[in-house]
Design a protein around this nucleic acid. Structure first.
Length: 162
DNA sequence: ATACCGGCTAGCC
DNA sequence: GGGCTAGCCGGTA
């Protein structure tokens, strides 16, 4: 039914694998990852035609049909609203979903973000000023992405935003 | 129902 | 700052 295209292409955070439908991007992963593995992840998300495509055709939006259900979807939607160069704590995001206290659940939700380059889960940090965890390349990758956006970090600690 | 697990928090050394 | 504890919540087995 739904056709999915994919390509390895340049993004604001370097080369990434992206997969997309007519409605939007449904999956992404860092470009240094194995193509085989990316396609395997795609297979788990969508059973149907997958074909190489022209990244110039890729929409800039998220195809929310592929978002995880339940609380994770709400948390990811809230995360998508964080502007570049800014950060929010897991607890703040929880509160904005109407669930103050669900900070830990927000962390879990960020870890299943299907398109980390579009839904900026790297902008969600710990309330004590530490950058917090990150699933992909660990906190190192998170720190690099934040620095690219102008956030100042020393060690694993935030020292200022632009 | 129950138990456990995580990208967390707040409080206390 | 670091280290530890107990409490927290949604998801999963």
């Amino acid at each position: 039914v739904t056709v999915v295209w994919y390509a390895r292409t340049a993004t604001a955070h370097g080369e990434w694998w992206i997969a997309w439908t007519q409605e939007g991007v449904c999956l992404s992963a860092p470009g240094d990852r194995d193509e085989r593995r990316f396609l395997a992840g795609l297979a788990g998300l969508h059973r149907g035609a997958v074909t190489p495509g022209d990244p110039a055709d890729a929409p800039d939006a998220f195809d929310w049909r592929f978002a995880p259900p339940g609380f994770a979807r709400e948390a990811l939607a809230a995360c998508a609203a964080i502007p570049a160069g800014e950060v929010r704590s897991y607890g703040e995001l929880a509160a904005s979903c109407g669930r103050p206290g669900a900070a830990r659940a927000v962390g879990t939700a960020m870890s299943v973000n299907p398109i980390p380059n579009l839904v900026p889960c790297h902008r969600v940090v710990r309330a004590d000023g530490m950058v917090g965890g990150y699933g992909l390349g660990g906190s190192g990758e998170k720190i690099e992405m934040l620095r690219r956006e102008g956030v100042m970090i020393e060690g694993e600690r935030l020292v200022g935003t632009r």
